[in-house]
Design a protein around this nucleic acid. Sequence first.
DNA 1: AGCACGCCGACT
DNA 2: GTCGGCGTGCTC
Length: 749
Amino acid sequence: MSKQYVNVIVDIVHTAVDRVFQYEVPEELFGKLSLGMKVRIPFGRGNTVRDGYIIGFTEKPDYDPEKIKQVQAVEEEAMPIEGQLIQLAAWMKEHYGSTMIQALKTVLPLKKKMKPVQKKYLVRTVSQEACCELLAVYRRKKQKARVRFLEALTEDEVLPYEAVTQRLRVSPASFRLFLEEGICRLDTEERYRNPVRGLLKKEQTFLLNEEQRAAISGMTASWDGKKETCLLHGITGSGKTEVYMELIRHVIKNGRQAIVLIPEIALTYQTVMRFYRQFGERVSIVNSRLSAGEKSDQFERARTGKIDIMIGPRSALFTPFPNLGLIIIDEEHETAYKSETVPKYHAIETAIKRCRMADAMVVLGSATPSASSYYKAQNGEYLLFQMRSRAKEESMLPSVEIVDLREELKAGNRTIFSRRLKELLKETLDRKEQALLFLNRRGYAGFISCRSCGEAVKCPHCDVSLTQHRDGKLKCHYCGYETEIPKSCPSCGSHYIAGFGTGTQKVEAMVRSMLPEARVLRMDADTTKGKGGHDAVLAAFADGKADILVGTQMIVKGHDFPNVTLVGILAADLSLYSEGYEAGERTFQLLTQAAGRAGRDKLPGQVVIQSYAPSHYSVEAAASQDYESFYWHEILYRRLLHYPPVYHMMSLLFTSKEENAAERMAGKVKEMAGEFEGHFKAETEEAEEQRHGAVEIIGPAKAAVSRINDSYRYVLYAKCEEEQSLLALKEKIEQMEWDRNVLYQFDME
DNA sequence: AGCACGCCGACT
DNA sequence: GTCGGCGTGCTC
């Protein structure tokens, strides 16, 4: 028999070893290895035993057979990765710049294949009457344990094993007799832990309106045919979920499975329930609260065909369905779909890639699509479906007014509440209705600063202000540095030093002093800590236990409060000034969402947007709930300044312990890229193509956070209309001679 | 990354 | 003379 070899990726995160290594398969492992399995291998001069993943097989090695070592063992506990997911990992490594092992590990989010929990039951095999007679016998014999057991068994035909041994305190010795006599039998059921249990499927039909039907038939047609990516633009309350469910039904009917991605914060009980009611036991859910074991159970259920639908956040994208047919990405504009850790993949692009491999289709849905997705829909890259009316006829769109805070200031009003908002708050309370006060969080961090010199207390290792924590200590979010609040200002020595507190706390206090009779509830990290804290606050408010709810982002995502008729947005434009070209988009999305919280039932809603930039298109378009107007303004701005989605952008981050080294290396890359730009210009003949292929370099500049953990950080941006040129540039940079003291990171947009 | 091999200074 | 510093190079 000829020798067998495997291609293995070694579990070491370093570019120097980020390639395939070949190992010989010993005979005792023949037939036991498959793609994606985890193996133990001797590695390096010292033959240290390390983990690796099988990514391929071969009979003839590409390496000197003399030097090839043998696979030591298989890690049988670990679940193998599907072949397609390995391919996907390879694509992610290329596209997002990571090592193969990092990409493999994101695609394989589970550590251990857990043994299924065995559930044991004691089942009565005789009639209730017979059991009752036997009970009488043992009562006479005064055998208490057996009496307890028989009482329970008379009552219920099936008893869980633990209930008998623990709650009833009947030992196995006591009921063994009954097992032998055939009074009852011991059943074991191998079942996977299911986070949702005892939910019965209630097939319910919903009435679909014209727009919903059009979207469904259009998407179904695409699925039956070319499986083009679809973008569903439907205003809040237009019934996107019903459309998803109809499409999923179609996909399942064709023997395929579906993944539904939802941003973690929006993964509410209500949303998930709707899927359960529709599809029952064939649905599963993963989220960050699930234990590793539970998570891996859910993936195993998907792999073995026990479920058809997986609902979850970004990571659910890698559910190992054998015959994936559809990926739905709800609230597609959410930033949560972009991974913050390497590989910094985007769920939308990755979903499209995965679907292309599996011949499946992607559906994106949002009330406020990202400029990038809408742009692609406009260009015909995605199919666009619009739903402009609310599914429930009676609910009306809220009326929105903008208050110019500069006018307030001129009129001598220095509080954060405009006179108009104050007035409406009072009216709302008088009508016994509820109000939401939404605070745009950016710019309100809980840092400590000096009242004399204005300097904020900074981290000694990073270029950021320290933030005050619950325990009163000052902490650095980047490196974890911790210190007590200083008694005097570190830069000028003044004793007048104090925190600004969290924004919501301040607002809460101000509402209390302004409207002493109002019952105010605050929702932030402090009031929601501990599990269920989140839901507890929301439930209390929904129950009418408070009149006003003050909070940030959290209160505007996917919660329905029928009695809320007033929404106040305190400082609408704070997010406009945050850096990054997406500031306008963020602001529009946030405002639109917040405004959508008012008057969702029969009561008419009112929204007050307070702003210092009331004529900014993001604010105006949000007030008139006009997505198109926002989009055309935004895309004009992006085109003008060469930002995505019109241009592709690659950002490079250089980090080094020596400040000069990082800057020098960034400069070197810029120089090289300059030549590269010329190279492109020379090669392309036509002027138009030249413009398209030309790469624009911006920087190097200090990063927004210029120092983290004593490492200096410099950024460089490369922009181009053709993504291909950027990828080629990336390739070139990777081949450059590199200063060993400088590390770099890519980010593609 | 992590380990071995190797080539120079200060110690038993 | 040898022990050990870390710089350099390789890993199937």
